[in-house]
């Protein structure tokens, strides 16, 4: 699988599988809304990428993929402690931002 699609898939799938637990850990509606917004963005990024063939030899894409891998590791660590949900949402926001940048690269 192209590394761009793989990176966006990893992010979207991880968020899908952990969404319920993360929503349950939210303490305020604002936190839930922020989390939902990021989830939807990650989903749209993924489906955009499904529909594009990203040139993995594009240096810009390669750099973003690497950045996404780093963000994905941060995400996995953050989700292990849902008592700090605000931190989790912040990490998700950063990760999805990178995903959006990757998904927007034209094929």
């Amino acid at each position: 699988m192209g590394s761009s699609l793989q990176a966006l898939q990893d992010q979207y799938f991880f968020l899908t599988q952990n969404l319920s637990d993360m929503l349950a850990a939210c303490e305020t509606q604002a936190q839930r809304d922020a989390l939902q917004a990021q989830y939807v963005t990650a989903r749209r990024n993924f489906f955009n990428c499904i529909n594009k063939t990203l040139h993995d030899d594009d240096p810009a894409a390669a750099a973003l993929v690497q950045q996404m891998k780093t963000e994905q590791e941060n995400l996995k660590k953050a989700v292990t402690d849902l008592s700090k949900i605000a931190t989790v949402i912040s990490v998700i926001t950063d990760a999805v931002k990178v995903g959006t940048a990757l998904a927007s690269l034209a094929g």
Partner: peptide, 24 residues
């Protein structure tokens, strides 16, 4: 062959979503 990764991804996203909802 070019499109195969996208086909795999389309199928898997459906399965991952279904599984997450089933777990819920």
């Amino acid at each position: 062959r070019q499109e195969q990764p996208a086909y795999d991804a389309l199928f898997m996203q459906n399965l991952v979503l279904a599984q997450s909802l089933a777990a819920e």
